[in-house]
């Protein structure tokens, strides 16, 4: 697969994972919404960093994303460890 596009396997894993989180937090939609917000903030900041050609110190790091998701998924270790498999520097 070209390095610039997610492979079908990566895409399928992401679909299954989002579906799993959505179902796990059916009774707590605010947790699911917070998860989406973290991802969108991360993506937006990644784009901002690209546009500003990697301004040092800007953007949310993978560590920050992981720790935000960890505090959101407290007690859901399986979800957290699966999330770590998506992070580039986990």
């Amino acid at each position: 697969c070209p390095a610039s596009d997610p492979s079908p396997v990566e895409f399928d894993s992401a679909i299954s994972y989002v579906n799993k989180i959505k179902n796990r937090f059916l009774d707590h939609p605010e947790i699911y919404r917070s998860f989406l917000e973290i991802l969108h903030t991360y993506q937006k900041e990644q784009l901002d960093v690209k546009e500003s050609r990697g301004r040092p110190g800007s953007g949310m790091t993978e560590d920050e994303v992981f720790s935000k998701v960890a505090s959101l998924f407290k007690g859901q270790e399986d979800l957290l460890s699966e999330f770590g498999q998506f992070l580039p520097d986990a």
Binding site: A3, Y17, V18, L39, F86
Partner: peptide, 27 residues
């Protein structure tokens, strides 16, 4: 089948892009 909203789909996009970056950084 999944009942995904546009927000869900964009989360899928972000996650799969992260996985792609991870693959690129490991290769």
């Amino acid at each position: 089948s999944y009942d995904f909203t546009p927000l869900d789909s964009s989360a899928v996009y972000v996650l799969s892009s992260m996985a792609r970056q991870r693959r690129a950084s490991l290769s």
